[in-house]
């Protein structure tokens, strides 16, 4: 597994269905964070130089490297903080209002 993943979770119906100890499976996610965003980052692939500063500085790990040495966003987990756009030395990332983004 490369990173924690969304897994199907059946809500317990009875107190007996809850785990008895305070432990749980690692890397188990039940919901995405996309709904937090007002602005969404959009990268201009032609301007991106693949320096990966945004990748380094993303608190959510929502940026990944692509095979052609550029970046792509995981919009399910991007919270739209804008650090990537603000720190990009080449202005390759712009923050676009969510409903205006294609």
């Amino acid at each position: 597994m490369l990173k924690p993943e969304i897994k199907n979770y059946v809500t317990p119906k009875h107190i007996r269905d809850y785990p008895t100890g305070p432990s749980f499976e690692a890397g188990h996610l039940v919901s995405i964070n996309a709904g937090w965003r007002t602005f969404k980052p959009v990268v201009d692939i032609n301007v991106c130089t693949g320096c990966y500063q945004c990748y380094l500085l993303c608190s959510d790990g929502a940026i990944s490297k692509t095979d052609n040495k550029k970046i792509e966003f995981d919009y399910s987990f991007c919270k739209g903080c804008g650090v990537c756009a603000h720190e990009c030395s080449f202005n390759a990332i712009s923050m676009v209002k969510e409903e205006l983004a294609k």
């Binding site: 990173k3 380094l56 608190s59």
Partner: peptide, 24 residues
Amino acid sequence: TAKNMTDKEFFFGHKACAGCGGSL
């Protein structure tokens, strides 16, 4: 560095506020 570090994300999908320095 950013270029050679692992692609694995060990802390991911958390509910920290947007732009959180601690989660980074």
